[in-house]
Simulated scan of single mutants.
Amino acid sequence: MNLAFVESPVQLLNVLEWAYAEGGGDHVLGDVTVVVLPPVDPMSRGQLRRTAELARDEGMHIRWQEARGGASAPLKTLRSLAGLLRTADRIVIGDPFSRYVQLLLTLVSARHLTVVDDGTATMEFTAQLARGERLVRWHRKGRTGPRELALSPVTARARSRFTPSAARTVEVFTAMPVEAPPGVAIAPNTFAWTRSRFGPPRLTKGADLVGTSLVETGVVDRDRYLEAVAALARTHHATRYFAHRRESTDKLHALEAATGLEIVRPDLPLELIARRGPIGRTVLSFPSTVVHTLPLALTGTEVRVAVCDIDPRWLRDTASPRAQGFLTGVTETARDVQRLAPWRATAVTEA
């Protein structure tokens, strides 16, 4: 049995893509049970429910598990999943940095482990794994508080699960440009399922802009971000702004008032929204997952994806020291995109 754990719509989409690739590209692999561990924010939950409907239509077994509903919820979740954890032959996870998933991994003895994309975090995961470092999200400053100290034995044990051995294979299914850590297999995610089920999209004349949660994660200054969005919208005649599911309502209201952009709250991951259409002939983004995934999902269309670099002056004091280097790496490794310099949105050059 294949047992998957997902906490975001993108992770669930990539489990679908993995199962389609495993099924030979004609159908989604059977015998997949997906345990959805939903976050608390309404946008993520809504997108997860819509993506789960697509997965059910493809024959997947979806188990919605409220694992964050109070202090006793984690223990109840572990007890309810004990049988599945013992019998699974393969574990598929979307977020190796998740403390919840790391706790679950300490309880499994599956012979195969697959990590599917959780966006650009996959790049940091494989790099840390190759260097033998502890698993820390790139935008964190790395401070070790009481909670991290208490969970360090769990994290260390879970990390050992990502090391291939005679008893266990480890695979990363990804659309991101990564180098394989020793013994880890890399399988390409080409968004074949998405392209087989949706599109090609109808294209609009204008440009669309993709939002980011860099403000919400404490990386980018809010005012600088609003100014950058306004500059891009003016220069490229953008009419719509596809909000990231974690963007705050307050920031989006301010952005709408400052730019006149139509704010769109997608009900599915952007790769599906774009492939289904309509979508602008130009899609503008800051460094994020979509500069890697949208060119794949939109293969065969005339859509151009352009990425605007993050100026170091936009970063907040709360940003991790690694933030600028990581964001630059996201841009520099993107394929089939156009690159825009900060504040000089008319200077378009081929990446």
Rank of each mutant, 00 (worst) to 15 (best):
A4G: 10
Q11N: 09
Q11L: 14
L13G: 01
L16A: 07
L16K: 00
W18F: 15
E22Y: 09
G23W: 01
V32G: 01
V36Q: 02
L37E: 02
P42C: 09
P42L: 10
R50K: 13
D57W: 06
G59P: 03
W64D: 10
G69S: 13
G69V: 04
G69A: 15
A71T: 04
K76N: 10
L81V: 10
G83T: 15
L84P: 05
A88P: 09
A88S: 14
A88G: 10
D89I: 07
I93W: 01
L105Y: 00
T106N: 09
V108R: 00
R111T: 13
R111P: 14
H112A: 14
V115A: 06
V116F: 07
T122S: 11
M123Q: 04
L129Y: 04
A130R: 00
A130T: 04
A130H: 02
V136W: 05
H139L: 02
K141C: 12
K141F: 07
T144V: 11
R147G: 04
E148H: 02
L149F: 14
L151C: 08
V154S: 06
A156V: 05
A156N: 15
A156H: 15
R157D: 08
R159F: 07
F162Q: 02
T163K: 12
E171T: 14
V172N: 00
M176D: 13
P182L: 11
A185C: 10
A187L: 13
P188R: 03
N189F: 01
F191T: 03
T194R: 00
R197T: 14
G199R: 08
G206D: 15
D208W: 03
V210H: 01
T212M: 05
S213Y: 08
D221M: 02
L226H: 08
A231P: 03
L232Q: 06
A233Y: 05
T239C: 06
S248F: 13
T249C: 06
T249S: 11
A258D: 13
A258E: 15
R265S: 06
I273Q: 13
I273F: 10
L284N: 00
F286C: 02
S288C: 15
S288R: 01
T289F: 07
V291A: 06
T293P: 02
P295W: 03
G300P: 04
R304G: 05
A306L: 12
C308T: 09
D317A: 08
T318M: 03
P321C: 10
P321T: 06
G329L: 04
T331G: 06
E332R: 04
A334D: 11
D336P: 01
D336G: 11
V337A: 02
W343N: 13
W343H: 09
V348R: 08
